[in-house]
Design a binder for these strands. Sequence first.
DNA 1: CCGTCTGTTTGCCGTGGCGCAACCAAGTGC
DNA 2: GCACTTGGTTGCGCCACGGCAAACAGACGG
Lengths: 232, 232
Amino acid sequence: MASVDRTLVADLPMFAGLAPEQVDRMLQEAQSVRYPKGTNVFQQDGEAHSFFILLHGHLRVFKLTPDGQQVVVRFVSPGEVFGVAMAIGRTTYPATATAVVDSIALVWPSAAWPRLVATHPALAVNTLQTVGSRLQDAHTRVVEMSTEQVERRIAHAVLRLVRQSGRKVEAGVEIDFPITRQDIAEMTGATLHTVSRVLSAWESQGLVEGGRQRIVIRQPHKLFLLAEGLPD
Amino acid sequence: MASVDRTLVADLPMFAGLAPEQVDRMLQEAQSVRYPKGTNVFQQDGEAHSFFILLHGHLRVFKLTPDGQQVVVRFVSPGEVFGVAMAIGRTTYPATATAVVDSIALVWPSAAWPRLVATHPALAVNTLQTVGSRLQDAHTRVVEMSTEQVERRIAHAVLRLVRQSGRKVEAGVEIDFPITRQDIAEMTGATLHTVSRVLSAWESQGLVEGGRQRIVIRQPHKLFLLAEGLPD
DNA sequence: CCGTCTGTTTGCCGTGGCGCAACCAAGTGC
DNA sequence: GCACTTGGTTGCGCCACGGCAAACAGACGG
Protein backbone atom coordinates (compact mmCIF):
# COMPACT_ATOMS: atom_id res chain seq x y z
CA MET A 1 0.00 0.00 0.00
CA ALA A 2 1.51 3.32 -1.10
CA SER A 3 1.47 5.73 1.80
CA VAL A 4 -0.02 9.14 1.09
CA ASP A 5 1.87 12.31 1.79
CA ARG A 6 0.24 14.16 4.65
CA THR A 7 0.80 17.54 3.03
CA LEU A 8 -1.66 16.55 0.31
CA VAL A 9 -4.59 16.20 2.65
CA ALA A 10 -3.73 17.62 6.07
CA ASP A 11 -5.36 20.95 5.26
CA LEU A 12 -8.71 19.46 4.35
CA PRO A 13 -11.62 20.54 6.55
CA MET A 14 -12.09 16.88 7.46
CA PHE A 15 -8.81 16.91 9.39
CA ALA A 16 -9.20 20.32 11.06
CA GLY A 17 -8.19 20.17 14.69
CA LEU A 18 -6.12 17.01 14.32
CA ALA A 19 -2.40 16.96 15.07
CA PRO A 20 -0.11 16.06 12.14
CA GLU A 21 0.79 12.74 13.77
CA GLN A 22 -2.85 11.90 14.13
CA VAL A 23 -3.44 12.60 10.46
CA ASP A 24 -0.45 10.40 9.64
CA ARG A 25 -1.82 7.57 11.69
CA MET A 26 -5.21 7.84 10.01
CA LEU A 27 -3.61 7.87 6.58
CA GLN A 28 -1.73 4.69 7.37
CA GLU A 29 -5.06 2.96 7.77
CA ALA A 30 -6.32 4.13 4.41
CA GLN A 31 -5.83 2.63 1.01
CA SER A 32 -5.41 4.67 -2.10
CA VAL A 33 -7.61 3.19 -4.83
CA ARG A 34 -7.96 3.95 -8.54
CA TYR A 35 -11.40 4.12 -10.13
CA PRO A 36 -11.26 4.21 -13.93
CA LYS A 37 -13.78 6.39 -15.72
CA GLY A 38 -17.22 4.80 -15.75
CA THR A 39 -16.70 2.49 -12.78
CA ASN A 40 -18.77 2.62 -9.60
CA VAL A 41 -17.11 3.55 -6.32
CA PHE A 42 -20.15 2.31 -4.46
CA GLN A 43 -23.67 1.29 -5.28
CA GLN A 44 -27.07 2.31 -4.00
CA ASP A 45 -28.37 -0.21 -1.44
CA GLY A 46 -24.99 -1.91 -1.34
CA GLU A 47 -23.42 -2.59 2.03
CA ALA A 48 -21.66 0.56 3.31
CA HIS A 49 -18.28 -1.10 3.79
CA SER A 50 -16.12 2.02 3.26
CA PHE A 51 -15.94 5.77 3.42
CA PHE A 52 -13.74 7.92 1.23
CA ILE A 53 -11.88 11.11 0.45
CA LEU A 54 -11.48 11.93 -3.22
CA LEU A 55 -7.88 12.70 -4.13
CA HIS A 56 -8.21 13.10 -7.86
CA GLY A 57 -10.97 13.09 -10.46
CA HIS A 58 -14.71 13.67 -10.29
CA LEU A 59 -17.63 11.51 -9.24
CA ARG A 60 -21.28 11.66 -10.11
CA VAL A 61 -23.54 10.65 -7.23
CA PHE A 62 -27.08 9.73 -8.19
CA LYS A 63 -30.20 8.00 -6.96
CA LEU A 64 -32.14 5.54 -9.02
CA THR A 65 -35.93 5.54 -8.68
CA PRO A 66 -37.98 2.32 -8.77
CA ASP A 67 -39.04 3.14 -12.33
CA GLY A 68 -35.48 3.61 -13.52
CA GLN A 69 -35.11 7.37 -13.52
CA GLN A 70 -31.88 8.86 -12.22
CA VAL A 71 -31.59 11.96 -10.04
CA VAL A 72 -28.14 13.48 -9.58
CA VAL A 73 -27.48 14.20 -5.92
CA ARG A 74 -24.16 15.95 -6.47
CA PHE A 75 -20.77 15.84 -8.08
CA VAL A 76 -17.78 15.10 -5.86
CA SER A 77 -14.59 17.12 -6.34
CA PRO A 78 -11.08 16.41 -5.03
CA GLY A 79 -10.69 16.96 -1.31
CA GLU A 80 -14.27 16.07 -0.46
CA VAL A 81 -15.35 13.33 1.91
CA PHE A 82 -18.03 11.01 0.57
CA GLY A 83 -19.73 7.72 1.28
CA VAL A 84 -20.11 8.49 4.99
CA ALA A 85 -23.26 6.36 5.19
CA MET A 86 -22.07 4.60 8.33
CA ALA A 87 -21.43 7.88 10.13
CA ILE A 88 -25.02 8.97 9.63
CA GLY A 89 -26.35 5.68 10.88
CA ARG A 90 -26.94 3.72 7.71
CA THR A 91 -25.73 0.28 6.83
CA THR A 92 -26.20 0.72 3.08
CA TYR A 93 -25.36 3.52 0.65
CA PRO A 94 -28.33 5.72 -0.25
CA ALA A 95 -27.01 6.41 -3.75
CA THR A 96 -24.52 5.28 -6.39
CA ALA A 97 -21.19 7.02 -7.04
CA THR A 98 -19.62 6.72 -10.49
CA ALA A 99 -16.29 8.09 -11.70
CA VAL A 100 -16.90 10.53 -14.57
CA VAL A 101 -13.15 10.64 -15.22
CA ASP A 102 -10.34 8.42 -13.97
CA SER A 103 -10.30 9.04 -10.24
CA ILE A 104 -8.35 8.18 -7.09
CA ALA A 105 -9.73 8.05 -3.58
CA LEU A 106 -8.51 7.31 -0.08
CA VAL A 107 -10.56 4.46 1.33
CA TRP A 108 -11.19 3.56 4.96
CA PRO A 109 -13.22 0.60 6.14
CA SER A 110 -16.49 1.79 7.69
CA ALA A 111 -15.82 -0.60 10.55
CA ALA A 112 -12.95 1.67 11.60
CA TRP A 113 -15.23 4.72 11.91
CA PRO A 114 -16.45 4.19 15.49
CA ARG A 115 -12.88 3.74 16.71
CA LEU A 116 -11.62 6.71 14.71
CA VAL A 117 -14.23 9.10 16.10
CA ALA A 118 -13.62 7.78 19.60
CA THR A 119 -9.91 8.51 19.21
CA HIS A 120 -10.35 11.77 17.31
CA PRO A 121 -13.57 13.51 18.40
CA ALA A 122 -12.81 16.32 15.96
CA LEU A 123 -13.67 13.91 13.15
CA ALA A 124 -17.29 13.78 14.24
CA VAL A 125 -17.42 17.55 14.58
CA ASN A 126 -15.90 18.06 11.13
CA THR A 127 -18.17 15.50 9.51
CA LEU A 128 -21.13 17.16 11.18
CA GLN A 129 -20.21 20.43 9.50
CA THR A 130 -19.80 18.71 6.14
CA VAL A 131 -23.12 16.91 6.38
CA GLY A 132 -24.71 20.09 7.68
CA SER A 133 -23.66 22.10 4.69
CA ARG A 134 -24.93 19.37 2.40
CA LEU A 135 -28.24 19.55 4.20
CA GLN A 136 -28.37 23.24 3.46
CA ASP A 137 -27.56 22.61 -0.18
CA ALA A 138 -30.35 20.07 -0.35
CA HIS A 139 -32.79 22.52 1.21
CA THR A 140 -31.72 25.21 -1.21
CA ARG A 141 -32.48 22.80 -3.99
CA VAL A 142 -35.91 22.02 -2.56
CA VAL A 143 -36.68 25.73 -2.35
CA GLU A 144 -35.54 26.26 -5.93
CA MET A 145 -37.58 23.35 -7.23
CA SER A 146 -40.62 24.63 -5.35
CA THR A 147 -40.51 28.23 -6.40
CA GLU A 148 -38.48 28.71 -9.57
CA GLN A 149 -39.11 27.81 -13.16
CA VAL A 150 -36.73 25.65 -15.14
CA GLU A 151 -34.58 28.32 -16.72
CA ARG A 152 -33.64 29.80 -13.36
CA ARG A 153 -33.14 26.36 -11.82
CA ILE A 154 -30.77 25.46 -14.64
CA ALA A 155 -28.94 28.75 -14.16
CA HIS A 156 -28.52 28.04 -10.46
CA ALA A 157 -27.29 24.52 -11.15
CA VAL A 158 -24.73 25.72 -13.68
CA LEU A 159 -23.51 28.46 -11.35
CA ARG A 160 -23.08 25.92 -8.56
CA LEU A 161 -21.00 23.76 -10.89
CA VAL A 162 -18.92 26.80 -11.78
CA ARG A 163 -18.27 27.60 -8.14
CA GLN A 164 -17.39 24.01 -7.35
CA SER A 165 -15.41 23.08 -10.44
CA GLY A 166 -14.99 26.13 -12.62
CA ARG A 167 -11.73 26.49 -14.54
CA LYS A 168 -10.77 29.74 -16.24
CA VAL A 169 -10.26 29.49 -19.98
CA GLU A 170 -9.88 32.15 -22.66
CA ALA A 171 -13.56 32.31 -23.46
CA GLY A 172 -14.76 32.40 -19.85
CA VAL A 173 -15.16 29.72 -17.21
CA GLU A 174 -15.41 26.06 -18.11
CA ILE A 175 -16.77 23.23 -16.00
CA ASP A 176 -13.71 21.07 -15.72
CA PHE A 177 -15.20 17.63 -16.10
CA PRO A 178 -17.40 16.09 -18.79
CA ILE A 179 -21.06 16.82 -18.09
CA THR A 180 -24.03 16.12 -20.32
CA ARG A 181 -27.34 17.99 -20.76
CA GLN A 182 -28.92 14.91 -19.31
CA ASP A 183 -26.84 15.41 -16.14
CA ILE A 184 -28.06 18.98 -15.82
CA ALA A 185 -31.60 17.76 -16.38
CA GLU A 186 -31.20 15.23 -13.60
CA MET A 187 -29.87 17.93 -11.29
CA THR A 188 -32.76 20.29 -11.88
CA GLY A 189 -35.78 18.09 -12.36
CA ALA A 190 -36.07 19.05 -16.00
CA THR A 191 -35.82 16.98 -19.17
CA LEU A 192 -32.86 16.66 -21.49
CA HIS A 193 -34.88 18.45 -24.16
CA THR A 194 -35.71 21.44 -22.06
CA VAL A 195 -32.11 21.82 -20.89
CA SER A 196 -30.91 21.64 -24.46
CA ARG A 197 -33.39 24.31 -25.53
CA VAL A 198 -32.42 26.61 -22.65
CA LEU A 199 -28.69 26.25 -23.31
CA SER A 200 -29.25 26.86 -27.00
CA ALA A 201 -31.12 30.04 -26.17
CA TRP A 202 -28.31 31.17 -23.88
CA GLU A 203 -25.75 30.36 -26.52
CA SER A 204 -27.53 32.52 -29.08
CA GLN A 205 -27.39 35.37 -26.55
CA GLY A 206 -23.66 34.84 -26.10
CA LEU A 207 -24.17 33.89 -22.47
CA VAL A 208 -22.57 30.48 -22.68
CA GLU A 209 -21.03 28.28 -25.30
CA GLY A 210 -21.50 24.57 -25.40
CA GLY A 211 -20.22 21.44 -26.98
CA ARG A 212 -20.25 17.76 -26.42
CA GLN A 213 -20.16 17.19 -22.64
CA ARG A 214 -18.81 20.69 -22.33
CA ILE A 215 -20.13 24.01 -21.04
CA VAL A 216 -18.23 27.29 -21.02
CA ILE A 217 -19.81 30.22 -19.24
CA ARG A 218 -18.87 33.40 -21.05
CA GLN A 219 -20.74 35.89 -18.89
CA PRO A 220 -21.06 34.52 -15.36
CA HIS A 221 -22.49 37.76 -14.04
CA LYS A 222 -25.26 37.87 -16.63
CA LEU A 223 -26.09 34.28 -15.78
CA PHE A 224 -26.18 35.18 -12.12
CA LEU A 225 -28.67 37.98 -12.75
CA LEU A 226 -30.79 35.55 -14.72
CA ALA A 227 -30.65 33.00 -11.90
CA GLU A 228 -31.80 35.61 -9.40
CA GLY A 229 -34.61 36.68 -11.67
CA LEU A 230 -33.36 40.22 -11.91
CA PRO A 231 -33.75 42.45 -14.94
CA ASP A 232 -30.45 42.79 -16.78
CA MET B 1 -35.57 28.03 36.44
CA ALA B 2 -37.67 24.90 36.76
CA SER B 3 -35.46 21.85 36.45
CA VAL B 4 -36.62 19.21 34.00
CA ASP B 5 -37.07 15.61 35.01
CA ARG B 6 -34.43 13.47 33.39
CA THR B 7 -36.86 10.64 32.80
CA LEU B 8 -38.71 12.86 30.32
CA VAL B 9 -35.80 13.20 27.95
CA ALA B 10 -33.05 10.74 28.86
CA ASP B 11 -34.26 8.21 26.29
CA LEU B 12 -34.09 10.60 23.38
CA PRO B 13 -31.65 9.66 20.63
CA MET B 14 -29.84 12.94 21.30
CA PHE B 15 -28.69 11.63 24.69
CA ALA B 16 -27.81 8.09 23.63
CA GLY B 17 -24.52 7.00 25.15
CA LEU B 18 -24.59 9.58 27.93
CA ALA B 19 -24.63 8.58 31.57
CA PRO B 20 -27.68 9.70 33.59
CA GLU B 21 -25.57 12.16 35.59
CA GLN B 22 -24.24 13.67 32.39
CA VAL B 23 -27.78 14.16 31.14
CA ASP B 24 -28.68 15.77 34.46
CA ARG B 25 -25.80 18.17 34.23
CA MET B 26 -26.76 19.15 30.69
CA LEU B 27 -30.35 19.68 31.71
CA GLN B 28 -29.26 22.01 34.48
CA GLU B 29 -27.80 24.28 31.84
CA ALA B 30 -31.00 24.39 29.85
CA GLN B 31 -34.00 26.62 30.25
CA SER B 32 -37.51 25.46 29.64
CA VAL B 33 -39.31 28.09 27.57
CA ARG B 34 -42.94 28.47 26.51
CA TYR B 35 -43.78 29.53 22.95
CA PRO B 36 -47.44 30.46 22.54
CA LYS B 37 -49.14 29.47 19.30
CA GLY B 38 -48.09 31.75 16.46
CA THR B 39 -44.85 32.98 17.99
CA ASN B 40 -41.43 32.44 16.44
CA VAL B 41 -38.87 30.30 18.21
CA PHE B 42 -36.18 31.65 15.92
CA GLN B 43 -36.01 33.61 12.73
CA GLN B 44 -34.33 33.09 9.40
CA ASP B 45 -31.04 35.03 9.20
CA GLY B 46 -31.27 35.83 12.89
CA GLU B 47 -28.22 35.19 15.05
CA ALA B 48 -28.09 31.50 16.05
CA HIS B 49 -27.95 32.14 19.77
CA SER B 50 -29.60 28.89 20.91
CA PHE B 51 -30.35 25.29 20.10
CA PHE B 52 -33.38 23.38 21.30
CA ILE B 53 -35.22 20.20 22.11
CA LEU B 54 -38.98 20.35 21.73
CA LEU B 55 -40.77 19.07 24.82
CA HIS B 56 -44.34 19.79 23.88
CA GLY B 57 -46.26 21.12 20.90
CA HIS B 58 -45.46 21.39 17.21
CA LEU B 59 -43.37 23.78 15.15
CA ARG B 60 -43.48 24.70 11.52
CA VAL B 61 -40.04 25.37 10.04
CA PHE B 62 -40.01 27.29 6.79
CA LYS B 63 -37.81 29.26 4.47
CA LEU B 64 -38.82 32.58 2.98
CA THR B 65 -37.70 33.34 -0.57
CA PRO B 66 -36.64 36.84 -1.67
CA ASP B 67 -40.00 37.27 -3.41
CA GLY B 68 -41.97 36.36 -0.31
CA GLN B 69 -42.90 32.74 -0.97
CA GLN B 70 -42.66 30.28 1.88
CA VAL B 71 -41.37 26.72 1.64
CA VAL B 72 -41.98 24.40 4.57
CA VAL B 73 -38.80 22.58 5.50
CA ARG B 74 -40.38 20.34 8.11
CA PHE B 75 -42.61 20.13 11.16
CA VAL B 76 -40.94 19.53 14.51
CA SER B 77 -42.51 17.05 16.93
CA PRO B 78 -41.82 16.57 20.66
CA GLY B 79 -38.49 14.94 21.40
CA GLU B 80 -36.75 16.35 18.35
CA VAL B 81 -33.63 18.50 18.39
CA PHE B 82 -33.82 21.64 16.30
CA GLY B 83 -32.05 24.91 15.66
CA VAL B 84 -28.62 23.26 15.60
CA ALA B 85 -27.30 25.91 13.22
CA MET B 86 -24.15 26.43 15.27
CA ALA B 87 -23.32 22.72 15.26
CA ILE B 88 -23.31 22.65 11.46
CA GLY B 89 -21.08 25.69 11.28
CA ARG B 90 -23.53 28.52 10.80
CA THR B 91 -23.84 31.72 12.76
CA THR B 92 -27.43 32.44 11.64
CA TYR B 93 -30.53 30.28 11.34
CA PRO B 94 -31.27 29.14 7.80
CA ALA B 95 -35.05 29.17 8.38
CA THR B 96 -37.80 30.39 10.67
CA ALA B 97 -39.51 28.18 13.28
CA THR B 98 -43.05 29.06 14.37
CA ALA B 99 -45.19 27.36 17.01
CA VAL B 100 -48.35 25.99 15.35
CA VAL B 101 -49.75 25.23 18.81
CA ASP B 102 -48.64 26.33 22.26
CA SER B 103 -45.25 24.71 22.66
CA ILE B 104 -42.47 24.21 25.18
CA ALA B 105 -38.80 23.67 24.41
CA LEU B 106 -35.56 23.14 26.25
CA VAL B 107 -33.15 25.89 25.28
CA TRP B 108 -29.36 25.86 25.43
CA PRO B 109 -27.14 28.78 24.47
CA SER B 110 -25.26 27.97 21.25
CA ALA B 111 -22.13 29.26 22.96
CA ALA B 112 -22.25 26.20 25.21
CA TRP B 113 -22.17 23.80 22.27
CA PRO B 114 -18.38 23.58 21.77
CA ARG B 115 -17.88 22.86 25.46
CA LEU B 116 -20.72 20.35 25.54
CA VAL B 117 -19.40 18.32 22.61
CA ALA B 118 -15.89 18.45 24.05
CA THR B 119 -17.19 17.04 27.32
CA HIS B 120 -19.64 14.60 25.74
CA PRO B 121 -18.36 13.42 22.35
CA ALA B 122 -21.47 11.29 21.98
CA LEU B 123 -23.42 14.50 21.40
CA ALA B 124 -21.60 15.14 18.14
CA VAL B 125 -22.13 11.56 17.06
CA ASN B 126 -25.83 11.69 17.88
CA THR B 127 -26.31 15.03 16.19
CA LEU B 128 -24.49 13.69 13.15
CA GLN B 129 -27.01 10.89 12.90
CA THR B 130 -29.91 13.31 13.28
CA VAL B 131 -28.60 15.69 10.66
CA GLY B 132 -27.76 12.73 8.46
CA SER B 133 -31.28 11.43 8.50
CA ARG B 134 -32.58 14.90 7.71
CA LEU B 135 -30.22 14.98 4.77
CA GLN B 136 -31.72 11.76 3.54
CA ASP B 137 -35.22 13.15 3.95
CA ALA B 138 -34.24 16.22 1.98
CA HIS B 139 -32.80 14.05 -0.80
CA THR B 140 -35.93 11.95 -0.86
CA ARG B 141 -37.88 15.14 -1.30
CA VAL B 142 -35.64 16.26 -4.16
CA VAL B 143 -36.12 12.92 -5.87
CA GLU B 144 -39.88 13.12 -5.45
CA MET B 145 -40.05 16.66 -6.78
CA SER B 146 -37.91 15.65 -9.74
CA THR B 147 -39.75 12.54 -10.76
CA GLU B 148 -43.31 12.47 -9.40
CA GLN B 149 -46.38 14.43 -10.25
CA VAL B 150 -48.29 16.46 -7.70
CA GLU B 151 -50.84 13.91 -6.58
CA ARG B 152 -48.16 11.40 -5.62
CA ARG B 153 -46.02 14.09 -3.99
CA ILE B 154 -48.98 15.16 -1.88
CA ALA B 155 -49.66 11.55 -0.98
CA HIS B 156 -46.06 11.11 0.14
CA ALA B 157 -46.16 14.32 2.18
CA VAL B 158 -49.38 13.32 3.93
CA LEU B 159 -48.02 9.85 4.68
CA ARG B 160 -44.88 11.36 6.16
CA LEU B 161 -47.03 13.54 8.39
CA VAL B 162 -49.00 10.48 9.42
CA ARG B 163 -45.85 8.59 10.35
CA GLN B 164 -44.47 11.53 12.27
CA SER B 165 -47.60 12.80 13.95
CA GLY B 166 -50.46 10.44 13.24
CA ARG B 167 -53.04 9.91 15.98
CA LYS B 168 -55.58 7.11 15.77
CA VAL B 169 -59.20 8.25 15.80
CA GLU B 170 -62.44 6.42 15.07
CA ALA B 171 -62.48 7.33 11.41
CA GLY B 172 -58.82 6.50 10.77
CA VAL B 173 -55.59 8.39 11.47
CA GLU B 174 -55.58 12.11 12.08
CA ILE B 175 -52.65 14.48 11.86
CA ASP B 176 -52.51 15.73 15.40
CA PHE B 177 -51.80 19.40 14.85
CA PRO B 178 -53.54 22.06 12.79
CA ILE B 179 -52.29 22.02 9.21
CA THR B 180 -53.62 23.95 6.24
CA ARG B 181 -53.80 23.04 2.54
CA GLN B 182 -51.41 25.92 2.07
CA ASP B 183 -48.92 24.11 4.35
CA ILE B 184 -49.19 20.96 2.26
CA ALA B 185 -48.73 23.05 -0.85
CA GLU B 186 -45.56 24.56 0.60
CA MET B 187 -44.26 21.10 1.47
CA THR B 188 -44.77 19.71 -2.01
CA GLY B 189 -44.11 22.58 -4.37
CA ALA B 190 -47.75 22.72 -5.41
CA THR B 191 -50.34 25.46 -5.08
CA LEU B 192 -53.08 25.74 -2.51
CA HIS B 193 -55.64 25.24 -5.26
CA THR B 194 -54.14 22.04 -6.57
CA VAL B 195 -53.83 20.59 -3.07
CA SER B 196 -57.44 21.44 -2.37
CA ARG B 197 -58.55 19.79 -5.59
CA VAL B 198 -56.54 16.65 -4.89
CA LEU B 199 -57.84 16.32 -1.34
CA SER B 200 -61.40 16.87 -2.54
CA ALA B 201 -60.95 14.10 -5.06
CA TRP B 202 -59.59 11.78 -2.37
CA GLU B 203 -62.46 12.68 -0.08
CA SER B 204 -65.01 11.77 -2.72
CA GLN B 205 -63.29 8.38 -2.99
CA GLY B 206 -63.49 7.92 0.75
CA LEU B 207 -59.72 7.94 1.04
CA VAL B 208 -59.48 10.83 3.45
CA GLU B 209 -61.78 13.26 5.15
CA GLY B 210 -60.93 16.86 5.68
CA GLY B 211 -61.97 19.95 7.49
CA ARG B 212 -60.58 23.26 8.51
CA GLN B 213 -56.89 22.72 9.31
CA ARG B 214 -57.67 19.06 9.69
CA ILE B 215 -56.95 15.89 7.75
CA VAL B 216 -58.07 12.38 8.67
CA ILE B 217 -56.72 9.51 6.61
CA ARG B 218 -59.35 6.82 6.42
CA GLN B 219 -57.48 4.33 4.25
CA PRO B 220 -53.73 4.72 4.81
CA HIS B 221 -52.93 1.64 2.77
CA LYS B 222 -54.85 2.86 -0.27
CA LEU B 223 -53.06 6.19 0.03
CA PHE B 224 -49.75 4.36 0.21
CA LEU B 225 -50.47 2.48 -2.99
CA LEU B 226 -51.36 5.75 -4.64
CA ALA B 227 -48.11 7.33 -3.42
CA GLU B 228 -46.09 4.48 -4.87
CA GLY B 229 -47.91 4.71 -8.15
CA LEU B 230 -49.18 1.15 -7.95
CA PRO B 231 -52.48 -0.03 -9.34
CA ASP B 232 -55.00 -0.56 -6.53
C1' DC C 1 -75.91 37.62 17.31
C1' DC C 2 -73.57 39.72 13.66
C1' DG C 3 -69.48 41.24 11.02
C1' DT C 4 -64.99 39.91 9.82
C1' DC C 5 -61.27 37.03 8.94
C1' DT C 6 -59.11 32.97 7.59
C1' DG C 7 -59.17 28.73 5.36
C1' DT C 8 -61.40 26.08 1.68
C1' DT C 9 -63.73 24.87 -2.68
C1' DT C 10 -64.49 25.02 -7.55
C1' DG C 11 -64.81 26.61 -12.41
C1' DC C 12 -62.42 28.39 -16.32
C1' DC C 13 -58.53 29.55 -19.03
C1' DG C 14 -53.76 29.95 -20.22
C1' DT C 15 -49.19 27.98 -20.61
C1' DG C 16 -44.66 26.06 -19.34
C1' DG C 17 -42.42 22.39 -20.17
C1' DC C 18 -42.82 17.36 -21.21
C1' DG C 19 -43.25 13.48 -24.63
C1' DC C 20 -42.41 12.03 -28.98
C1' DA C 21 -40.01 11.91 -33.15
C1' DA C 22 -36.77 13.01 -36.46
C1' DC C 23 -32.39 14.58 -37.54
C1' DC C 24 -27.67 15.91 -36.78
C1' DA C 25 -22.77 15.77 -35.19
C1' DA C 26 -18.83 14.16 -32.86
C1' DG C 27 -16.38 10.47 -31.06
C1' DT C 28 -14.98 5.47 -30.98
C1' DG C 29 -14.00 0.87 -32.33
C1' DC C 30 -12.81 -2.24 -35.90
C1' DG D 1 -12.11 4.91 -43.54
C1' DC D 2 -16.53 3.32 -42.30
C1' DA D 3 -20.12 1.63 -39.19
C1' DC D 4 -21.93 2.43 -34.85
C1' DT D 5 -22.77 4.67 -30.62
C1' DT D 6 -23.49 8.46 -27.77
C1' DG D 7 -24.80 13.09 -27.08
C1' DG D 8 -27.18 17.16 -28.86
C1' DT D 9 -30.77 20.00 -31.35
C1' DT D 10 -35.30 21.23 -32.71
C1' DG D 11 -40.30 21.14 -34.17
C1' DC D 12 -44.95 19.93 -32.80
C1' DG D 13 -48.86 18.75 -30.02
C1' DC D 14 -50.65 18.05 -25.58
C1' DC D 15 -51.80 18.24 -20.79
C1' DA D 16 -50.94 18.78 -15.87
C1' DC D 17 -50.85 22.63 -13.18
C1' DG D 18 -50.86 27.27 -12.04
C1' DG D 19 -53.32 31.80 -12.04
C1' DC D 20 -57.34 34.20 -11.55
C1' DA D 21 -61.82 34.87 -9.81
C1' DA D 22 -65.80 34.14 -7.18
C1' DA D 23 -68.30 32.05 -3.63
C1' DC D 24 -68.55 29.73 0.66
C1' DA D 25 -68.11 28.18 5.64
C1' DG D 26 -66.38 27.67 10.07
C1' DA D 27 -64.08 30.33 13.85
C1' DC D 28 -63.52 34.28 16.48
C1' DG D 29 -64.12 38.87 18.49
C1' DG D 30 -67.03 42.44 19.93
